[in-house]
């Protein structure tokens, strides 16, 4: 990477944040690392053509790579009762256990999952989300609405907790 020092700086500075997004998309750290590295490798070849802040571009590549994986390897990932990774318990007694949210997130269709992650994890606006995913703002709205509705009635989230409507 010596010939592209800006790329190395970007990876060092921004890859932890990108990895977290990838983690929520893929559901586990190993796949997240794989997705991130694959996306960065794709971006490396086009680095000289990226103008301005490269992060939206890398995010876009990562999202499209993720959706492409989902299409290509759709048989590899299936919703399961038991998650491959477990986190420590919620010592603070938060209202929603993150494991339950993760499991529910993984049961969403890929595009809805991506919309939820970008809107509620990366705090992107509807317009920014639409641009990254290459879809219209209206589609972002409808996908968000559907995703939240699904989460609202998800068995994992409603089984042992009394739910109120997600506002």
């Amino acid at each position: 990477m010596a010939e592209r020092p800006e790329f190395a700086e970007f990876v060092v500075a921004r890859s932890p944040a990108l990895l977290r997004t990838a983690r929520l998309l893929t559901g586990d750290w190993a796949s997240a690392e794989d997705l991130l590295q694959d996306s960065l490798a794709t971006c490396w070849r086009r680095w000289s053509r990226i103008s301005g802040n490269p992060e939206p571009y890398v995010q876009k590549v990562m999202l499209h790579t993720y959706l492409a994986w989902r299409r290509r390897f759709w048989t590899r990932e299936r919703p399961t009762e038991v998650l491959p990774e477990t986190s420590v318990g919620d010592a603070t007694g938060r209202v929603v256990d993150e494991d339950e949210v993760q499991a529910a997130l993984r049961r969403l269709p890929p595009r809805q999952r991506a919309v939820v992650v970008l809107r509620y994890f990366d705090d992107l606006s509807e317009a920014e989300t639409a641009q990254l995913l290459g879809i219209s703002t209206g589609t972002v709205k409808s996908q968000t609405s559907k995703a939240l509705a699904t989460l609202r009635v998800d068995e994992g989230l409603t089984s042992d907790r009394a739910r109120t409507e997600v506002r």
Partner: peptide, 29 residues
């Protein structure tokens, strides 16, 4: 308890609180 959008945000962030350390991501790329 109500699941607010803020709850969802916090839950998502907590799920990514402790990423594994990758010694040489740049090298891997």
């Amino acid at each position: 308890m109500p699941l607010t959008e803020q709850d969802l945000r916090e839950s998502l962030r907590r799920a990514t609180d402790a990423p594994p350390r990758v010694a040489d991501r740049l090298g891997a790329v």
